Deep mutational scan, measured.
Amino acid sequence: NRRVIAMPSVRKYAREKGVDIRLVQGTGKNGRVLKEDIDAFLAGGAKP
């Protein structure tokens, strides 16, 4: 169970979209999950 780095607003956005943030690959600094990562996940998967 890895620790997810994300701003509270991004965590809320993921919850609102029904996304398990632990499944999203973060592309920000130090692997931080960004809102754009949530959108990319919803569009068909995590960014490479």
Rank of each mutant, 00 (worst) to 15 (best):
N1Y: 01
N1C: 07
N1R: 04
N1S: 03
N1L: 04
N1K: 06
N1I: 06
N1D: 09
N1A: 00
N1V: 03
N1T: 03
R2D: 12
R2G: 05
R2N: 09
R2W: 06
R2I: 15
R2A: 00
R2S: 08
R3H: 02
R3G: 07
R3V: 12
R3N: 14
R3T: 07
R3K: 04
R3Y: 06
R3S: 05
R3Q: 09
R3A: 06
R3P: 05
R3M: 09
R3D: 10
R3F: 15
V4D: 15
V4A: 07
V4F: 14
V4K: 12
V4N: 09
V4H: 05
V4S: 11
V4T: 07
V4L: 09
V4W: 05
V4Q: 08
V4E: 12
V4C: 03
I5Q: 01
I5K: 05
I5S: 13
I5A: 06
I5V: 12
I5P: 07
I5R: 03
I5T: 13
I5F: 07
I5M: 13
I5D: 14
A6T: 13
A6L: 08
A6K: 06
A6E: 15
A6W: 05
A6V: 09
A6R: 05
A6S: 13
A6D: 14
A6P: 11
A6Q: 08
M7T: 02
M7W: 06
M7Y: 07
M7N: 05
M7R: 03
M7G: 13
P8Q: 05
P8K: 11
P8V: 14
P8I: 10
P8N: 11
P8G: 14
P8W: 06
P8S: 11
P8M: 11
S9M: 15
S9Q: 04
S9Y: 13
S9E: 15
S9G: 14
S9T: 12
S9F: 13
S9D: 09
S9P: 14
S9I: 14
S9K: 04
S9A: 14
S9R: 08
V10H: 01
V10S: 03
V10P: 05
V10W: 01
V10G: 01
V10N: 03
V10D: 04
R11C: 15
R11F: 13
R11H: 05
R11E: 12
R11Q: 14
R11M: 14
R11S: 11
K12M: 08
K12P: 02
K12A: 08
K12C: 06
K12R: 11
K12G: 13
K12I: 15
Y13L: 12
Y13E: 09
Y13C: 07
Y13S: 03
Y13K: 04
Y13M: 12
Y13R: 02
A14F: 00
A14G: 07
A14W: 01
A14K: 01
A14E: 02
A14R: 02
R15E: 13
R15M: 12
R15G: 14
R15H: 15
R15S: 14
R15N: 13
R15F: 14
R15K: 15
R15C: 10
R15A: 12
R15D: 10
E16V: 06
E16G: 10
E16F: 04
E16T: 06
E16C: 00
E16Q: 05
E16L: 02
E16A: 04
E16W: 03
K17Q: 09
K17S: 10
K17F: 10
K17V: 13
K17E: 11
K17Y: 10
K17P: 00
K17H: 06
K17N: 12
K17R: 12
G18Y: 05
G18M: 10
G18S: 11
G18Q: 11
G18L: 09
G18K: 14
G18D: 06
G18P: 02
G18C: 12
V19R: 00
V19W: 00
V19D: 00
V19P: 00
V19Q: 03
V19C: 13
V19I: 12
V19A: 12
V19G: 01
D20Y: 03
D20L: 01
D20P: 11
D20A: 05
D20E: 11
D20Q: 11
D20W: 03
I21C: 03
I21T: 13
I21L: 13
I21S: 06
I21H: 10
I21E: 09
I21D: 07
I21M: 14
I21Q: 01
I21K: 02
I21R: 02
I21N: 03
R22D: 03
R22Q: 14
R22E: 15
R22M: 14
R22I: 15
R22L: 14
R22P: 10
R22A: 14
R22H: 13
R22C: 15
R22N: 14
R22V: 06
L23N: 14
L23T: 12
L23Q: 09
L23K: 08
L23R: 07
L23F: 03
L23A: 12
L23C: 10
L23D: 15
L23I: 15
L23V: 12
V24L: 11
V24N: 00
V24Y: 00
V24G: 00
V24A: 07
V24F: 03
V24R: 00
V24S: 03
V24E: 00
V24W: 03
V24C: 08
V24D: 00
Q25K: 09
Q25G: 10
Q25I: 04
Q25W: 10
Q25T: 10
G26T: 05
G26E: 02
G26P: 15
G26L: 01
G26D: 01
G26N: 02
G26R: 03
G26K: 02
G26C: 05
G26W: 04
G26I: 02
T27W: 02
T27S: 11
T27H: 04
T27R: 07
T27N: 13
T27D: 03
T27Y: 00
T27L: 04
T27C: 05
T27A: 09
G28C: 06
G28R: 03
G28K: 04
G28E: 03
G28D: 04
G28T: 03
K29R: 02
K29A: 10
K29C: 05
K29M: 03
K29N: 07
K29P: 07
K29D: 09
K29E: 12
K29W: 02
N30C: 03
N30V: 09
N30G: 09
N30H: 08
N30E: 14
N30Q: 12
N30K: 10
N30T: 03
N30W: 08
N30L: 13
G31A: 09
G31P: 03
G31Y: 15
G31N: 02
G31E: 08
G31M: 02
G31R: 06
R32N: 15
R32I: 05
R32F: 03
R32S: 12
R32Q: 08
R32W: 15
R32P: 05
R32L: 10
R32A: 08
V33N: 01
V33Y: 06
V33C: 04
V33W: 01
V33H: 15
V33R: 01
V33E: 01
V33P: 02
V33M: 07
V33F: 01
L34M: 12
L34Q: 15
L34G: 13
L34W: 08
L34V: 10
L34H: 08
L34D: 02
L34R: 07
L34I: 05
L34N: 09
L34T: 03
K35S: 08
K35Q: 11
K35V: 05
K35D: 03
K35H: 14
K35E: 04
K35P: 14
K35G: 06
K35C: 07
K35M: 07
E36G: 12
E36P: 08
E36V: 08
E36S: 07
E36R: 10
E36W: 05
E36H: 01
E36Q: 07
E36T: 08
D37P: 00
D37W: 00
D37N: 05
D37G: 00
D37V: 00
D37L: 00
D37H: 00
D37M: 00
D37R: 00
I38R: 00
I38C: 04
I38E: 01
I38N: 00
I38S: 01
I38Y: 01
I38Q: 01
I38P: 00
I38W: 00
I38D: 00
I38A: 01
I38T: 03
D39L: 04
D39I: 02
D39S: 05
D39W: 03
D39Q: 06
D39F: 01
D39R: 02
A40P: 04
A40K: 13
A40D: 13
A40Q: 01
A40R: 08
A40S: 13
A40M: 10
A40T: 13
A40V: 07
F41V: 11
F41W: 12
F41T: 10
F41K: 11
F41C: 11
F41Y: 04
F41R: 08
F41S: 10
F41G: 08
F41L: 07
F41A: 12
L42W: 10
L42E: 07
L42N: 04
L42D: 15
L42P: 03
L42A: 07
L42C: 13
L42S: 05
L42M: 14
L42Q: 07
L42T: 10
L42H: 13
A43D: 11
A43N: 12
A43V: 13
A43F: 07
A43P: 07
A43H: 12
A43M: 02
A43W: 05
A43G: 14
G44W: 08
G44S: 12
G44A: 12
G44R: 12
G44M: 11
G44E: 13
G44H: 13
G45F: 03
G45N: 08
G45K: 12
G45A: 14
G45M: 12
G45V: 12
G45D: 11
G45P: 10
G45L: 10
A46K: 04
A46V: 11
A46H: 02
A46Y: 06
A46L: 11
A46M: 15
A46W: 08
A46P: 13
A46D: 09
A46S: 10
A46N: 15
A46Q: 09
K47L: 06
K47P: 06
K47I: 07
K47R: 03
K47S: 13
P48I: 15
P48V: 07
P48H: 08
P48T: 15
P48K: 02
P48G: 04
